[in-house]
Computed example of a mutant assay.
Amino acid sequence: MEVTLLGTGDTTGTPTVGCDCDTCSAARSRDVERSRFSVHVENERTGESLLVDCSPDFRHQFLRDDVDLPDAAVISHIHFDHLDGLGNAYRLLDSLPVYAADETDPATGESVADTVSSKFDYLDRVTVHPESPFETFETCGFEVTLVPVDHPPLVCYGLTVRDPETGATLAVSGDTSYAVPDDSRAELADADLLLVDGIVPARLCEYHPHGGTHEDDDGTPRTFGTKHMTFEGARALAAELAPETYRLVHVSHFPTPEEAFAEDVAVDGEQFTL
């Protein structure tokens, strides 16, 4: 299993358009970036590739990292930075099976699969496959399992991707607060690689309208506002889930350069062989 981190940033990416903050400037000087979230998973046994979330930066990511176009995709939730790249299936792909959760979201009245179907109904190359959380399905020679996480007000899902031949496992937390349900934590545990949502250091919670939540014993917030983990929360969850390796993803440009480019904070183009 060859994992390429195509996009490791939040909804604006780093460098952020029109921003000359220290972190955006450092990213430019280092020639690194964090585009909107997406992960490419290649099955070297079958020659197939699975795309986890379809970033609006799809074209740039695939040209930059020179990976194969996907044979299938999984969508974690319906925010544009994880979904809108699906439009790139037009003229590029003969077909693209897209897997997404089948649970109805009270906030929208439809499931993630329903939203993908309705939003991209003009693309006959895209076929949507509704899947139930915790019920493993097969695609690209992998076993994939969706798990609910906590990303209010919308439903959102993490997932695991396993190679049944080798046992290699990628776990993705999805966009989430620290309040990941226990049964989801159990599914995400003990992976070879964990990609865990961490948007800013906890010290920046004072600037969020909702502050910080899910504090640890020392009073450090593990959730920034309500939707994403702090760096401290992401690292705490990684310590609990005990992967072989982990990286913080969905990172914003608000941390300092020292914080933003720490060893465990992902940048685009990183590759892992599991």
Rank of each mutant, 00 (worst) to 15 (best):
V149G: 11
Y207E: 15
D124Y: 07
G85C: 06
G158W: 01
E135F: 04
Y122M: 00
T160H: 15
D71T: 02
H208N: 15
A179Y: 02
S173V: 00
T139G: 06
A73K: 07
D114W: 08
S111A: 04
N88R: 03
V149C: 13
A179W: 00
R125M: 13
A101I: 06
V155R: 14
F80L: 05
S177T: 11
P152G: 00
L154V: 11
V128D: 09
G158Q: 06
S173N: 01
G141R: 00
V196F: 12
D94G: 15
L146H: 07
V74F: 02
L195M: 09
C140S: 09
D68I: 10
R185P: 12
A179C: 02
S117V: 00
L188C: 10
V180W: 03
R185I: 14
S76G: 10
L86A: 03
P153E: 07
D190M: 01
A191H: 09
L123I: 01
S76R: 09
P130E: 07
P106H: 09
S184E: 06
H151K: 14
A179T: 15
V74W: 05
L159E: 12
G85N: 08
A168R: 04
D94H: 07
C140G: 08
V126N: 10
L69N: 03
D114S: 14
E110V: 15
H151Y: 15
L154R: 11
S132P: 10
F137R: 07
E187Q: 14
E138C: 06
V74L: 07
I78C: 03
F80P: 08
H77D: 09
E103L: 09
D71A: 05
V74Y: 08
S184R: 13
V196Q: 13
L159W: 08
V128M: 03
V196I: 15
L170C: 04
D94I: 10
H208Q: 13
L193Q: 02
